[in-house]
Write a protein that binds this DNA or RNA. Structure first.
Length: 555
RNA sequence: UGGCCUAUAGUAUAAUGGUAGUACGACAGAUUUUGGUUCUGUUUGUCUAGGUUCGAAUCCUGGUAGGCCAACCA
């Protein structure tokens, strides 16, 4: 799989750092905020960070960036850990920014003592107003004149809980006329009398991202701190703080985040879809979340291969959902057991086959893996076939059933269609055919060539199950870039429920996570949420490539 | 109207001053008891204008286009 490929720009940097001895070994980290579920964009970051650790014989930490107690929950921590593990990665250490609160507080006092930070009593509106604009410099207020002693006392009182939320902040004494807005005296501590999922009520002041992330990197000795492009402006502050604090010089590098067609990739928007009931949950199989994809039947390998292939660069991108599907099919084709299932059933009567007689016919479990063996299928007079496999008036390109046509029933006999019946409304109810006894699969002596092969299931032996077919969540390629509310571009037909499909009886023993290919219909997996012992529910992971559908569309 | 980041086939990504390549897609064909798989072939590209150089996708300058930055979010 991993044939030699050229390096991405981060690998270039790492190889140079290793070669020139700037670092002896590398240490990366995956640093999610536990305020939501991980999505495929995070998978790119996970594969990058952990992949680099593995590739260069280094290590990777999992660090929760839990500096904002009001948005973070233990539930998210657990789901994130499960998702990273499921993707196939193991972290060297599990850390939390909150582990470092005491140390970070010490750093802050150090800055105050050196006159590099001050306590500001302004409101957030005043601070914003004084900040200026990208084209106009900001101005500093009188609070910036406070002495280190004064600041130290105020900051200690902030920590002690003397002041209410929003009444004071600690700011860096930066450069109010910097073209980089982030350097204009950024806030590094704010007062929040809130319960933290790990530190409980021990703290009422919390560090901001810029005073936690880089410092955590340094504390852990992270050599290469890899983040997404929107943090580019933060790098100047990241480096400034390392220099002033005289701590381990981690370095930040930025890459372009993943965007994919027909979905959205921001936690805020995904949360909205969940909260407003557009999807069932974070792990709805239509969601671009890791948990949603897992439930849908995407494999960890296919996601890793995808992340590998899309590469790492600094250019904005919008990747075709079809590429992910390609890797899903590629993996599943090799591993999924073949089964027959009829989703939209119509009776097929083999008129010259004896009533109440059945025979058992073998069929391969996976043509890609002969060692997976065969299972036996019941064949008899009454079968279920797919409604779309019959056409009353067919063109010469039609290989399936039509009056007079000849097709192979997969792993069974060749049949010749002799007739059909419709109900009063004109809906097809039954197809009639005669089988050719000497055309039996494996020992075909009929000399007849059938152009098409269709799947089927013995009517008396079939079990029923619910099947859920999914389509893209949005009607447009890039919902976030369209006019107006992104939710107005939701695809109303993203979920189709088939309440009664017929399938092979051994599917009764299916378990979530084990993929099947329903012949000619796609890859399916048992749904981990809705499936019950007496009510099977299968999710369609992805369709098979369908060149016929494309041909038919051409007219 | 400031600063920063970016620009290579339809979509991604490589070529690190020296033959523009790879994957997906599309198209055509072969194989096939899944209109699947597999195999073969074809197709399409360096944003623009200058400059440096024997030689530029690559370096420089201007332009154009897209993205990011004015949260007590991360």
């Amino acid at each position: 799989m991993s044939e030699e490929r050229s390096l991405n720009f981060i690998e270039d940097i790492i190889e140079r750092d290793l070669k020139e001895g700037r670092v002896k070994s590398i240490l990366t980290r995956f640093p999610p905020e536990p305020n939501g579920y991980l999505h495929i964009g995070h998978a790119k970051s996970i594969c990058l960070n952990f992949g680099l650790g593995i590739k260069y014989g280094g290590k990777t930490n999992l660090r929760f960036d839990d500096t904002n107690p009001v948005t973070e929950e233990t539930e998210y921590v657990e789901s994130i850990k499960a998702d990273v593990r499921w993707l196939g990665f193991e972290w060297a250490n599990e850390f939390y920014a909150s582990d470092y609160f005491e140390q970070l507080y010490g750093y802050a006092e150090k800055l105050i003592e050196r006159g590099l930070a001050y306590v500001d009593d302004s409101t957030s509106e005043e601070i914003a107003e004084q900040k200026g604009t990208p084209t106009q410099p900001g101005r500093r207020n009188n609070y910036a004149e406070r002495t280190p002693e004064e600041n130290l006392q105020l900051f200690r009182e902030m920590r002690a809980g003397t002041y209410p939320d929003g009444s004071k902040v600690l700011r860096i004494k930066g450069d109010m006329s910097s073209p980089n807005m982030l350097m204009r005296d950024p806030i590094i501590y704010r007062i929040k009398h809130a319960h933290h999922h790990r530190t409980g009520d021990a703290w009422c002041i919390y560090p901001m991202y810029d005073f936690a992330h880089g410092q955590s990197d340094s504390i852990e000795g992270i050599t290469h701190s890899i983040c997404t492009l929107e943090f580019v402006p933060h790098r100047e502050l990241y480096d400034w703080l390392i220099e002033k604090l005289e701590i381990f010089p981690s370095r930040q590098y930025e890459f372009a985040r993943l965007n994919m067609t027909y979905t959205v990739m921001s936690k805020r928007k995904l949360l909205q879809l969940v909260n407003e009931g557009n999807v069932e949950s974070w792990d709805d199989p239509r969601m671009p979340t890791i948990s949603g994809m897992r439930r849908r039947g995407y494999t960890a390998k296919s996601i890793r291969d995808f992340c590998d292939r899309i590469g790492v660069a600094k250019r904005e991108n919008l990747i075709d959902l079809g590429l992910l599907e390609f890797f899903v099919r590629e993996d599943l084709n090799k591993t999924a057991l073949r089964r027959m299932a009829v989703l939209d059933p119509v009776k097929l009567i083999i008129t010259n086959y004896e009533e109440n007689k059945y025979e058992l016919l073998p069929s391969e479990n996976n043509p890609e893996m002969p060692e997976k063996g065969e299972r036996m299928l019941h064949f008899g007079r009454e079968l279920w076939i797919e409604r779309e496999d019959f056409m009353e008036e067919a063109s010469k390109k039609w290989f399936r059933l039509a009056p007079g046509s000849v097709v192979r029933l997969k792993s069974a006999y060749i049949v010749r269609c002799t007739g059909f019946e419709k109900d009063e409304s004109g809906k097809l109810t039954t197809v009639m055919a005669e089988y050719i006894p000497e055309s039996k699969s494996g020992s075909d002596t009929s000399g007849i060539h059938a152009k098409g092969t269709i799947h089927w299931i013995s009517a008396p032996h079939a079990v029923t199950a619910e099947v859920r077919l999914y389509d893209r969540l949005f009607r447009v390629e890039d919902p976030s870039s369209e006019e107006g509310d992104f939710k107005s571009y939701i695809n109303p037909d993203s979920l189709q429920i088939i309440s009664k499909a017929y399938m092979e009886p051994d599917l009764l023993s299916a378990v979530p996570g084990v993929p099947y290919q329903f012949l000619r219909k796609g890859y399916f997996v048992l749904d981990s949420v809705h499936s019950k012992e007496n009510h099977l529910v299968f999710n369609r992971t992805v369709t098979l490539k369908d060149t016929w559908a494309k041909e038919a569309k051409k007219g």
